Amino acid sequence: MASNNGRNTSEIFEGQTLLYRHMFAFVDSMSLKWMVELGIPDIIHNHAQPITLKELVSTLQIPPSKIYHVQSLMLYLAHNGFFERVTIHDNTEGKEAYALTSASELLVKGRELCLAPFLKYCLHPTSVAPFNQIEKWIYKEDLTIIDMSLGCNYWDFLTKNPAHNKGFNEAMASDSQMMNLVLRDCNWVFQGLESVVDVGGGTGITSRIICEAFPNLRCIVLELPHVVENLQGSNNLTYVGGDMFKSIPTADAVLLKSTLHNWDDNDCIKILKNCKEAISSKGKVIIIDVVINEKLDEHEVTGLKRLLNVVMACSLNAKERSEQEWKKLIMQAGFESYKIFPLTGYLSLIEIYP
C-alpha cells in the first residue's frame, strides 16, 4: 500500500529507522566518552580475562539503582563492536562476560598504541559545542564554527589556552603512534634518504618513530615555536621553531602527515611551494593524508572520509580531497608528478616529485 508521497509503508519505516539512528548518534560518542572516563577498557585489561557485569559494577562501585543503566550502556557498546559478549564458566554455571575488541584495546591506557587521549580531546565540550553553530556558519563568509563559537580561529585558540593546547598535542601524539604499524609495511619510503623535515610535526612522535627505524636518517621537526620550545632532541632528531608558510629547512624529503587537510587550497599551495624550495631536484615530498575514492573504498571507509571532510570544513574551512583535487594542488604548486599508495584503513601515502 502506497502512501500519499508515493512510498510504500516499508520504505517509510526504513526511512524513520535511518533518521532516528542518526538523530541519536550523539549517544554513540558520549557512550565512548563514558567508557574511557570510567576506565572500563583498563579494568577489563587488568582483569586479565572477560569481566562479568557483577564484577564490573563492583570494581566501579556503582550504586544498585544504576546497575541496569551500566548494563544498557555495555550492551549498546557491545552491539557497536567495542566489547565482545562471551560466556565464561564458573564450575558448571555459564555467565555472560565482556571482552575487549580490537577497537576498545586501542583505549587501554599505558599501552604503546592508545587513542584514549585523541578520543577525550575530540569529545571535550569545547570541541563538540561549536557544531551546534552549523546552521549559522553556513551563511557566514570565511568564518568557521570555531570562529563563531570561540571568537578566534582554532590555532589562535590553542595558543591562548595552554591546557587545551596540551590536550591537542597529546591527542595528535596518540594518533601518531599508529605510524609504528605503518612503518612496518612501507619503510621503503625513507630508504636512501639522509634527511627529512617533518612539517607541522607536533611534539615529534612520528619523527621519533622514523628515527628509531632509520638511525642514520636525520629528522627535523618544524613546528610553531611555542610547541617545541621545551622539547629535547637526540643524535638524529632536531626541533626547529618556525612557520611553514614562511620557510622550511632544506632536506632530502619533506613529510606532511595529516597537515594539508587542515588548510584550504590556497594555503596548501603556499605550503607545497615552500616544500619544493626545501628539497633538491632529486628529493620528494611525502604526504600522509586522506584521499577520497568512492569507487575503490568500502562504504564504511568512504563514510569515515566524508565525515572527516565535514569536520575539517566546519572547523577550519579546510577539506579532505579526492585524487583529482590533490593533483590540482600538486600541479599548481609546480611539481611534475606524483604517486598514491594505500597506507592504512583510511589514510593514503602520496609521493610528489619536483
Rank of each mutant, 00 (worst) to 15 (best):
A2R: 14
R7V: 10
Q16E: 01
L19N: 04
L19S: 04
R21A: 10
R21K: 08
H22D: 05
A25H: 11
D28F: 15
M35Y: 03
L38Q: 03
L38N: 07
I40G: 11
P41T: 07
D42L: 08
H47M: 13
L53M: 15
K54E: 15
K54P: 08
E55F: 06
V57P: 13
V57T: 15
T59K: 13
L60E: 10
L60F: 09
Q61P: 05
I62G: 07
P64W: 00
P64E: 00
S65P: 00
K66R: 04
V70L: 02
M74F: 05
L75W: 04
Y76K: 00
F83H: 08
T87R: 00
H89Y: 04
T92F: 02
K95A: 03
E96I: 12
T101P: 13
S102P: 01
S104Y: 03
E112D: 07
A116M: 11
L119R: 05
L119H: 07
C122E: 13
H124I: 03
P125E: 07
T126S: 12
T126Y: 07
S127Y: 06
A129M: 06
N132F: 14
E135H: 14
K136L: 06
W137N: 10
K140G: 09
S149D: 07
C152Y: 05
N153Y: 14
L158V: 12
A163Y: 12
F168I: 06
N169L: 14
S176D: 02
S176R: 06
M178I: 13
L183R: 01
N187G: 11
V189Q: 06
G192H: 08
S195G: 12
V196F: 05
V197W: 09
V197H: 13
D198A: 11
G200T: 13
G201Q: 12
G202I: 12
I209K: 05
I210S: 04
E212A: 15
A213C: 08
L217Q: 02
E223F: 10
H226Y: 10
V228D: 10
E229C: 08
E229K: 09
G233Y: 13
N235H: 06
V240T: 13
G241M: 05
M244N: 02
F245E: 00
P249M: 08
T250K: 13
D252C: 04
A253D: 02
L256G: 01
K257L: 13
T259N: 14
T259Q: 10
L260T: 11
W263V: 00
D264S: 03
D265I: 07
D267W: 02
I269S: 01
K273P: 00
K276I: 15
A278Q: 10
A278H: 10
K284Y: 02
I287K: 14
I288P: 13
V290S: 04
I292T: 06
N293M: 02
N293C: 07
H299S: 15
E300F: 15
T302Q: 12
G303A: 12
K305W: 01
K305M: 02
L308S: 09
N309T: 11
V311K: 08
L316G: 02
N317E: 01
E320W: 09
E323F: 14
E325M: 11
W326P: 11
W326F: 11
W326M: 09
I330N: 00
M331Y: 08
M331A: 00
G334F: 04
F335Q: 00
G345W: 11
L347K: 15
L347R: 15
L349M: 14
L349T: 14
I350M: 04
